[in-house]
Simulated scan of single mutants.
Amino acid sequence: MEPNVIMKQGRLKLVPAEKKHIIPLAETLSEENIFELSLFDRTPIDFFMEFVEKDDVYVVEKDYVPLAITGVEADGPQTGLMWAMFAKDMQKNWYSFLKASPNLVEFMHGNYYKLNMNILESNERIIKWALWLGFKADAVIKGENVDYVHFVRCNLLKKNVYNLASRPVIH
């Protein structure tokens, strides 16, 4: 495999996010993601500049063209908040991305027992994607103008040392 390529599915590659990805992603970001960023008074450039150099942030590329950016932010002990944003051209590559998605989520689970995701209630395609990947809808977060569906996915193969019920009893 090529250097910096973490995983590959057909012509799609997962690579660490870099500054070189910012402009191409910002220029091709989907309308849904632009709308979501606008809810927080953020521009794509502003958001990507903040997140592109963080740990656990990756880009899905096809022939060196970025199609998605995704990452996990620590959200508590052994818990991470997974997020993803897509370029308009991801639609043309959606089925290849779906094939790669289970491996992507397993990779993202690497440092976390539990992953959370918050998805706009109006974004049906991404909600279906999350459900297909084994995330469970846990709650609806009511906002002023929009609602989010909160999803949870646990990695049952990873031990959760923070699960008090599974700790041994000491007498």
Score class of each variant (00 low, 15 high):
1 M>W: 02
2 E>W: 00
2 E>N: 12
3 P>K: 07
5 V>D: 04
5 V>P: 02
5 V>E: 05
9 Q>E: 15
12 L>Q: 00
12 L>H: 01
15 V>E: 07
15 V>H: 00
15 V>D: 03
16 P>Y: 03
16 P>H: 00
18 E>M: 12
18 E>Y: 06
19 K>P: 09
19 K>E: 15
19 K>G: 12
20 K>P: 04
22 I>Y: 07
22 I>Q: 05
23 I>V: 14
25 L>R: 08
27 E>N: 13
27 E>Y: 07
28 T>V: 05
32 E>I: 14
32 E>D: 15
32 E>H: 14
34 I>E: 11
35 F>R: 13
38 S>D: 01
38 S>A: 01
38 S>Q: 00
41 D>G: 05
43 T>Y: 09
46 D>L: 08
47 F>W: 14
47 F>R: 14
47 F>L: 03
47 F>G: 01
49 M>A: 07
49 M>L: 12
55 D>P: 07
55 D>E: 13
55 D>L: 08
56 D>L: 09
56 D>K: 09
56 D>Q: 13
57 V>P: 06
57 V>C: 11
58 Y>V: 02
59 V>Q: 07
59 V>C: 07
63 D>A: 01
64 Y>D: 15
65 V>M: 10
66 P>Y: 04
68 A>C: 02
68 A>I: 02
69 I>S: 10
70 T>S: 13
70 T>L: 13
71 G>W: 04
71 G>I: 03
72 V>Q: 05
74 A>H: 11
75 D>Y: 15
75 D>L: 11
75 D>R: 12
77 P>M: 06
77 P>W: 05
79 T>Y: 01
80 G>M: 00
81 L>Q: 13
82 M>Y: 15
84 A>Y: 11
84 A>R: 05
87 A>E: 11
89 D>P: 05
90 M>Y: 05
91 Q>V: 15
92 K>E: 15
92 K>R: 13
92 K>I: 02
92 K>P: 08
93 N>R: 08
97 F>I: 05
97 F>W: 00
98 L>V: 02
99 K>P: 01
100 A>D: 00
102 P>Y: 02
104 L>W: 13
104 L>P: 09
105 V>H: 02
106 E>K: 15
106 E>Y: 06
108 M>E: 03
110 G>R: 15
110 G>V: 03
111 N>R: 09
116 N>H: 12
116 N>D: 09
117 M>Q: 10
118 N>I: 04
122 S>D: 10
122 S>H: 03
123 N>H: 11
123 N>T: 01
124 E>P: 05
124 E>A: 15
124 E>T: 12
125 R>N: 11
126 I>R: 02
127 I>Y: 04
128 K>G: 03
129 W>M: 08
129 W>A: 06
130 A>F: 06
130 A>V: 05
134 G>E: 07
134 G>T: 00
135 F>D: 05
136 K>W: 09
136 K>V: 14
139 A>R: 01
140 V>L: 07
140 V>Y: 02
141 I>E: 09
141 I>L: 12
142 K>D: 06
144 E>P: 01
145 N>P: 00
150 H>D: 08
151 F>E: 05
151 F>G: 04
153 R>G: 00
153 R>I: 09
153 R>A: 10
156 L>Y: 01
156 L>C: 04
157 L>Q: 15
157 L>R: 14
161 V>S: 10
161 V>I: 15
162 Y>R: 10
163 N>F: 10
165 A>G: 08
165 A>L: 12
166 S>Q: 00
167 R>H: 12
168 P>F: 09
170 I>M: 12
171 H>T: 13
171 H>P: 15
